[in-house]
């Protein structure tokens, strides 16, 4: 008997969330099928690939990135270069320098940096904080004001600061709120419930349910994302129908495979290539398990992952 394929789209769908404005605005989510299951129904908004720029420029230590930025001196110029990368859909601006335990840059300084980047690029912008809950809340408020007309996604509101971030970013400025939990499926749902009880509309929320580099507990990330998509689609759980955005860069480039130098481990080959490999493997795995967008650090990864997405969804 010949095989007859029966498409199985779900009645429920992931929310479509638009980030950015104008021609280059992007929409993530909207699908009513499991990740990359184009044989069940078309996926209108394939997963998006973002390129990370940090305010501190630490990534310039990687030769391939330094080469991209050759001849630039300001973060605005770097953003302009980033825009030309093959396969890039959005810019993710990370304020690593705002960390109170590091450079402790003021929220006002960060807002000025954000403005500079925004005027240099028309790509959609995602803003990543420094990870300190209190500082991020203050920082996001200033940046949300500075980029009021750019429809920015802020990463992230956490259990410790969701009220401040949700109120400032989501309610006062109508920007998009990222809800972050660390591989805790119940907290992922709870944060969405709390944000919506606060008044943030579901279609203005994206989630980062946690990430890890492959080989470093990624199976927990995978099963969490799998359960989220199952609840969203097969159980029509409206508290989990938010698209997933996964920051891969900081995970992939911080594990020993990417960090140990070639001098220390000659048999492993060049460190940069290992970082790229970790980043690509992690990003592709994340997309396969349900990320609607990934944030990457290396131009080579952006190129490869975007061509993977194209091959899988076209």
């Amino acid at each position: 008997m010949p095989f007859k394929s029966t498409p199985q789209p779900f009645k429920a769908a992931i929310n479509a969330v638009t980030i950015g404005v104008g021609d280059k605005a992007m929409t993530i989510g909207g699908e009513n099928v499991l990740p990359l299951y184009t044989f069940d129904a078309p996926i209108a908004n394939p997963p998006k690939v973002g390129f990370e720029i940090t305010d501190t420029g630490l990534e310039l230590a990687i030769p391939g990135i330094a080469a991209l930025y050759e001849g630039t001196s300001t973060i605005g110029e770097r953003a302009k270069k980033a825009e030309t990368l093959e396969g890039v859909d959005f810019i993710s601006l990370k304020f690593a320098g705002a960390d109170p335990n590091g450079e402790n840059k003021s929220a006002e300084d960060c807002a000025a940096v954000a403005k500079e980047v925004a005027s240099a690029t028309s790509l959609p912008i995602v803003v990543e904080g420094c990870g300190n809950a209190e500082k991020d809340a203050a920082l996001f408020e200033k940046v949300a004001d500075a980029l009021a007309d750019r429809n920015v996604l802020f990463m992230s509101a956490k259990e410790e600061n969701y009220k401040a971030v949700g109120a400032a970013v989501g309610l006062a400025y109508g920007q998009k709120v990222g809800a972050e939990s660390s591989v805790d499926i119940n907290l992922a749902k709870q944060l969405n419930v709390l944000l919506s009880q606060l008044g943030v509309k579901n279609e203005n929320i994206a989630i980062n349910p946690g990430s890890a580099a492959v080989g470093y507990g990624f199976e927990y990330v995978a099963s969490t994302m799998e359960r989220i998509k199952a609840a969203a689609l097969s159980q029509n759980d409206t508290s989990l129908q938010m698209p997933i955005v996964t920051p891969v860069a900081s995970e992939a480039f911080n594990v020993k495979e990417a960090v140990v130098s070639e001098e220390d481990m000659p048999e492993w080959g060049p460190a940069e290539q290992r970082g790229i490999d970790m980043e690509i493997s992690t990003a592709v795995s994340a997309i396969t398990y349900g990320s609607n967008a990934v944030i990457l650090r290396h131009p080579e990864s952006v190129k490869t992952v975007s061509s993977f997405v194209k091959a899988m969804t076209e």
Partner: peptide, 12 residues
């Protein structure tokens, strides 16, 4: 397991 647990499950 008809519905995923969250602390606020009674409110939704």
């Amino acid at each position: 397991d008809n519905c995923l647990y969250a602390d606020s499950y009674l409110e939704i």
